[in-house]
Design a protein around this nucleic acid. Structure first.
Length: 152
DNA sequence: GCCAACGTTGGC
DNA sequence: GCCAACGTTGGC
């Protein structure tokens, strides 16, 4: 299976690229959207990720990460003290899955949402067509282009 | 803080 | 299975 490419969103106030660089890797918990979950379940170790800051000023892609552990159940769904607790999920049949990602690099220049939207070559990105999905697939070409726009 | 564009839930 | 009501995301 060829390497694939993704875009993952995080609010910098919750977990920024700086946090990822400091931690070196993290588990991507708290995703409670089926499409995003399905995307994570199809990820393979080595897949590359555009790291996107949402609810930021300006919002945009700030770095590159890499999948370092394939999908396993999101532990927060079983933790009644977590805000991500899901009483309808069981350990035998977990509803929510996540992957681990590791820090690769920071982009020398931020590629803002506005930059992405105004580039005709990126008009088909899910980020443009359907903004709200927090874990999206991107094509190899889109990934390469955003990376280049970011000065990497 | 507003609100558009979604997704989810649950009554029927 | 429909759909109204409600919740969430995320740009602005």
């Amino acid at each position: 299976m060829a390497k694939r490419y993704w875009l993952m969103k995080s609010e910098p106030g919750v977990y920024s690229i700086d946090d990822l660089e400091r931690d070196s890797s993290t588990l991507w918990d708290g995703v409670r959207n089926y499409k995003a979950r399905n995307n994570m379940r199809s990820m393979k170790v080595g897949d590359e990720v555009l790291y996107y800051h949402s609810n930021a000023n300006p919002p945009g892609v700030v770095g590159i990460a890499r999948v370092c552990r394939e999908a396993y159940p999101d532990p927060t769904q079983f933790d009644s003290r977590s805000k991500y607790f899901d009483g309808k999920s069981t350990r035998a049949d977990p509803r929510w899955w996540l992957v681990d990602i590791e820090f690769v690099a920071r982009l020398p220049r931020l590629v803002s949402l506005e930059d992405v939207k105004s580039d005709p070559a990126l008009a088909d990105m899910e980020l443009v067509r359907y903004g709200r999905l927090s874990v999206q697939a991107v094509t190899r070409e889109e990934f390469a282009r955003v990376k280049r726009m970011g000065g990497a």
